[in-house]
């Protein structure tokens, strides 16, 4: 796995570049397969990011958040 993207928008931007390059038909076999692999990793990252905000709305009050953060080592 290559380095984790900085953010969702960075990942999507790179993904668009990859697809543009693939659509141009200028990439050779080796580059195409390499781009496809990188693209699949980016898709997986973006899907995980979307899943993280797709499960269900959580509502906290400020003090609850503070308490939760104190309770967890992260």
């Amino acid at each position: 796995m290559t380095e984790k993207p900085e953010s969702y928008e960075v990942a999507v931007e790179r993904l668009e570049q990859i697809i543009d390059r693939l659509d141009s038909g200028q990439a050779g076999l080796r580059e195409t397969l390499e781009l496809c692999r990188e693209g699949r990793e980016l898709v997986a990252y973006c899907a995980a990011e979307l899943d993280a905000v797709g499960e269900g709305l959580k509502e906290l009050n400020l003090d609850e958040l503070a308490a939760r953060l104190e309770g967890s080592p992260s």
């Binding site: 993280a52 797709g54 269900g56 709305l57 959580k58 906290l60």
Partner: peptide, 13 residues
Amino acid sequence: LERRGWRGTVVWG
């Protein structure tokens, strides 16, 4: 937020 399909965490102040 719901209409946007966003279901993350909202912290109320």
